[in-house]
């Protein structure tokens, strides 16, 4: 294995997995996994139109982040009770709109006769071609995420449980919720450029679902979710490097396997506990 080539890739896998795993702890905890895919596709749409405007390379992050932030703030401003819709229905509508915008942009590439290779990489990601510069951007976004979690740890616990109860307890729900959505747009935009819009969904959902089956409690679940995300990213890359199998697919399958193992573990320990209770 060429260590010089694989070192930044492995680091990227760990940082991406940990930061999306941590974010996923909240997103899955609030039962809004669509948020991740919705914001990721908004970022994709932003990047597509940025590329159409002639932007290339890391500069594409700017329109991607702008589009993701706008969609995140829009989600924050729509009150499900006012529009009488479940939050997942709202996210579903926004997701389809964002995907439509992205594919409209992709269609325009062929109309204008411009190459869309760079933008197509965003759909599937290019983790195996990640360099140290990309890793540092990911580390910076993960640091912002950690600062947010530390600063709003207790407020996010309240919001995670119920926004209504959090507001009733005097929590500044709109402020913290909007900041969280902006954070989600930052983390998803930065990471999706490397891992792709499709793989990011599995890294958001699977580690968090597995963590909630393995441990109980807010802090522990977040920690285990981040750790399982990092393990999925690192393990997937390791397997991919050793076998030459496609990186993204291996990471997705590995993270899904972790969910299956966690669910089996939970079921086994629950039945063993029930058995020992009956014997007692």
């Amino acid at each position: 294995m060429d260590l010089l080539f694989w070192a930044p890739v492995m680091c990227a896998g760990i940082v991406t997995g940990a930061s999306t795993g941590l974010l996923g702890g909240y997103i899955v905890g609030m039962r809004i996994p669509f948020l991740g895919i919705c914001v990721a596709h908004a970022a994709l749409a932003g990047a597509v139109f940025g590329a159409l405007a002639g932007l290339t390379g890391p500069v594409l992050l700017i329109p991607a982040l702008a589009a993701a932030s706008i969609s995140a703030v829009a989600i924050g401003l729509i009150d499900p009770q006012t529009v009488r819709m479940d939050i997942n229905v709202i996210l579903g509508i926004l997701f389809s709109l964002m995907m439509g915008m992205a594919f409209l942009g992709l269609g325009l590439f062929s109309i204008y006769g411009v190459s869309d290779n760079e933008v197509r990489n965003l759909l599937w990601g290019s983790l195996a071609f990640c360099r140290w510069r990309d890793v540092w951007i990911m580390v910076a976004s993960a640091a912002v995420e950690l600062i947010f979690v530390a600063a709003f740890y207790k407020e996010m616990r309240a919001i995670l449980f119920s926004r209504t109860h959090a507001a009733a307890a005097g929590v500044r729900v709109t402020l913290v919720w909007t900041l969280f959505l902006l954070l989600a747009s930052l983390v998803l935009t930065v990471n999706f450029e490397t891992v792709g819009g499709l793989m990011i969904y599995s890294l958001l959902a699977n580690p968090a679902v597995a963590a909630s089956r393995l441990v109980r409690g807010y802090g522990r679940t977040l920690l285990v979710s981040a750790a399982l995300g990092a393990a999925s990213g690192f393990g997937g890359l390791l397997i991919s490097a050793a076998t030459d199998l496609p990186t993204g697919a291996v990471i997705v399958i590995l993270s899904s396997l972790i969910v299956v193992l966690a669910a089996a573990w939970k079921k086994t320990t629950a039945s063993l506990r029930a058995k020992s209770c009956r014997q007692a």
Binding site: G25, L160, F161, S162
Partner: peptide, 12 residues
């Protein structure tokens, strides 16, 4: 409250 998908404890 429907609670959370995250297994928050009663104390939390």
């Amino acid at each position: 409250a429907p609670g959370s998908e995250m297994p928050l404890t009663l104390r939390e």
